[in-house]
């Protein structure tokens, strides 16, 4: 069969990306830019030399984890818009552990990473338990939790971790993910060992969801809550667990920024967008571990490559934001793509 269901599921993300990039090209044409030059600049900005490649991979790292966070919750039928806030508390917790202790690296680094995962998990637990016990919609609670996380972390940075400063101290080297080896290989980019953590977590997600009983239950609740309940599974328990694990992934994404890229936490006026971009990553990656890794790679490339577009082609960086938004629309509207396929198939007969 030319277009099996599986085939269409794989084609939809690809078509969406192509349509998104095409729309970007049309926008560039309308505003008098050369789209080929624009995209060439983007390509060079992402892969042009080893420094850019390093920066691209660095950007991919938190995207993989935030994408996994969104995807994991979605597999249980929950939309976790709160990844952004969970990233914040994870970032804060990892830096807090990183600056407050003086331990050998083999204990300090895992402890800092664990703290981030626990903080994120706790931030995911609240909407999870509210959904499971009281039936409160997780979308609204997680949005509210984002702002609470933003303001509380700013307050903690200012009043607890420092004395009125806008930035914490640098974390101890024993808690850092930074790697001289990776940095020197990529002409002193900020690439760090976090990429390995992120890829490993993708493997963990695949294993938990597909190879364990618990994962089967989580997916089952995502497919049909009533059937799962009838089969003797505790829907509430699985909802809480899914949000906790999702939050832990998001917390790790925060640790990547705190322990790897920056090495400190500062007062922020707004969101980092790692969490919101994670929604795009998960959707494009069809909520599967491998898909998320590939989608994170694409978005990391777009984001970092875009920084080169103003200098080389004169195109404003923000074009990429429009392209990403359009890709989300196209993936979300997959019904119409599917419909077009089926129509095409019928007429082909």
């Amino acid at each position: 069969m030319l277009f099996s269901n599986r085939m269409i599921n794989i084609l939809i993300p690809i078509i969406s990306v192509v349509l998104g990039l095409l729309s970007g090209a049309i926008i560039m044409l309308v505003f008098g830019y050369n789209p080929i030059e624009g995209y060439a600049a983007l390509w060079n900005g992402a892969f042009g030399d080893s420094y850019f490649l390093g920066e691209t991979l660095r950007q991919v790292t938190p995207y993989i984890l935030s994408g996994l966070a969104v995807a994991f919750a979605l597999r249980t039928g929950l939309l976790n818009i709160g990844v952004e806030g969970q990233v914040f508390v994870g970032w804060l917790a990892s830096v807090a552990v990183g600056i407050s202790f003086d331990l050998p690296m083999i204990i300090h680094l895992p402890l800092a990473i664990l703290a981030a995962a626990l903080a994120g998990a706790f931030w995911g637990f609240i909407p999870g338990i509210l959904k499971a016990k009281l039936g409160v919609h997780e979308v609204i609670v997680t949005i509210m939790m984002n702002y609470i996380a933003l303001y509380i972390s700013n307050d903690i940075v200012r009043n607890v971790l420092t004395d009125g400063e806008d930035r914490t101290a640098e974390i101890a080297p024993s808690a850092s993910l930074a790697s001289e080896w990776l940095a020197s290989m990529t002409y002193f980019s900020r690439l760090h060992y976090g990429l390995i953590v992120a890829l490993f977590m993708a493997l963990v997600m695949w294993f938990v969801l597909n190879k364990t009983t618990r994962g089967f239950e989580l997916r089952s609740v995502g497919f049909n809550q009533n059937a799962s309940k009838y089969a003797g599974m505790s829907v509430g328990k699985n909802i809480v667990l899914a949000m906790v694990i999702s939050g832990a992934f998001a917390g790790l994404a925060g640790a990547m920024e705190g322990l790897g890229t920056f090495g400190y936490m500062n007062v922020k006026s707004g969101f980092t967008n790692i969490g919101f971009d994670g929604i795009a990553v998960a959707l494009l990656g069809a909520n599967m571990a491998l898909g998320v890794v590939l989608a994170a790679f694409l978005f990391g490339t777009l984001k970092i490559g875009a920084l080169n577009m103003p200098t080389e082609a004169g195109v404003p960086t923000e074009l990429v934001e429009i392209v990403i938004a359009l890709i989300i629309f196209f993936v979300a509207s997959s019904y119409i793509i599917r419909w077009a396929f089926l129509r095409f198939k019928k007429e082909g007969k």
Binding site: L79, V139, L283, E318, E321, I322, L326, I328, A332, Y335
Partner: peptide
């Protein structure tokens, strides 16, 4: 198109900011 309304809303947020900042530049 029967898109997920929450996801479409998230995309609206991205799109508006993208268009606004792009045109401002």
């Amino acid at each position: 198109f029967r898109a997920d309304q929450v996801v479409s809303g998230v995309a609206i947020n991205f799109l508006a900011l993208g268009i606004g900042l792009f045109l401002t530049k």
